[in-house]
């Protein structure tokens, strides 16, 4: 046998470890909740997680693409808010039809993302700064368009918002949940089965190598920001379906929740490693913490942030340890 051939023992792939940890954590949290509060055990608690956080899930999926390339997108919260404001404004004050509004909102999101991606790739402005400008720009647009938070009574929007899809076991989910899950499936497919998706990973692993291997790095880098803008706009629409209002001050700090969900889901912030499924788990963990704190009743809402911070710390240290052992 040649010296190069090495027989490898099987061990769980280390890059899956953070994701497995997140899953264990999620199940444990659910088990704890179920043991403490009888109502917690019902399936609807889990479905409510999806209902309440479907918009964040979609935003976090877009963020996953950006982070996989080694970038970051701070503008997502502002783009979400812009989408809600645009929807409310066009539907209530200008009498646009629902489909037209939806198309426009999604186009605006994608366009903003493309702009930021172009700044990052072609003018070599750091992702942090470029998307920060995007954050201010989109939030500024929100406030310029409207300073109020009008409610929406468009027939299409309200029917989407109020339709409950029954599930066995006396449970139900909303249309938004279905939309979010479709996004998850598409994103998973794109990342795993398309050249674009694999290039996203390659760029995150080593941009220089990706260039030398002849991959379409420029197109990919701009695309992930466009995609993130699109997902943020879609997330904004889902938020509209959830709240039926357009608030220029909504979704402040969403970028942090999205980044936290992505990191807790096992995606490495320097890029190249992570899964859409992990991000789903990450969002569910954030939601589960909030739900537990709500059920407890004596704990105040700020514990959510503190616990998320602690979790972030735990997962980042875990990633460090894995990276160190791999070396």
């Amino acid at each position: 046998m040649s010296t190069l051939t090495r027989v490898k023992e099987y061990r769980p792939q280390q890059r899956h470890l953070p994701m497995i940890a997140t899953l264990v954590l999620l199940v444990a949290a659910y088990g704890y909740g179920a043991s403490q509060y009888p109502a917690f055990g019902s399936g609807q608690v889990v479905f409510n997680l999806f209902i309440n956080y479907s918009w964040l899930l979609v935003v976090a999926i877009g963020m996953t693409f950006v982070i996989l390339t080694g970038g970051i997108d701070l503008s997502v919260g502002s783009v979400v808010a812009l989408s809600t404001v645009l929807s409310a404004e066009l539907l209530t004050k200008h009498g646009w039809s629902a489909p037209a509004v939806i198309v426009l909102v999604l186009a605006v999101g994608a366009l903003l993302g493309t702009g930021m991606g172009a700044l990052i790739h072609y003018f070599e402005i750091q992702p942090f700064i470029a998307t920060l400008v995007g954050l201010f720009f989109a939030r500024g647009l929100c406030l310029t368009i409207s300073t109020e938070a009008p409610s929406i009574d468009n027939a299409v929007f309200t029917s989407i918002a109020q339709t409950q899809i029954p599930l066995p076991g006396d449970s139900h989910v909303s249309i938004s949940v279905v939309i979010a899950l479709v996004v998850v499936v598409i994103a998973g497919y794109v990342l795993h089965y398309t050249r674009f998706g694999r290039t996203v990973y390659a760029v995150g692993g080593s941009e220089q190598s990706a260039v030398l291997m002849g991959l379409k790095v420029a197109r990919t880098k701009v695309s992930v920001y466009a995609l993130s803008g699109f997902c943020s706009a879609l997330g904004g629409l889902l938020l509209v379906f959830y709240k039926l209002s357009g608030d220029p001050l909504s979704a402040i700090g969403t970028e942090l929740d999205a980044i936290a969900a992505v990191v807790i889901g096992g995606t490495i912030l320097s890029g190249g490693s992570g899964y859409v499924v992990g991000t789903v788990l990450g969002v569910l963990v954030l939601g589960m913490i909030q739900t537990l704190i709500d059920f407890d009743g004596t704990l105040s809402s700020w514990w959510t942030k503190i616990v998320i911070g602690a979790l972030l710390f735990g997962f980042i240290v875990l990633q460090r340890l894995i990276a160190r052992r791999a070396r």
Binding site: F128, S300, W302, I308, G309, I316
Partner: peptide, 27 residues
């Protein structure tokens, strides 16, 4: 000491810090 990338390391306190401030003021 731990050698964590600065942007990630300080993200932890950025997220948790607001919670700590609210904890201090009791919301």
């Amino acid at each position: 000491v731990l050698g964590i990338q600065p942007i990630i390391a300080t993200l932890i306190l950025m997220v948790a810090g607001r919670g700590i401030a609210q904890l201090i003021t009791d919301g």
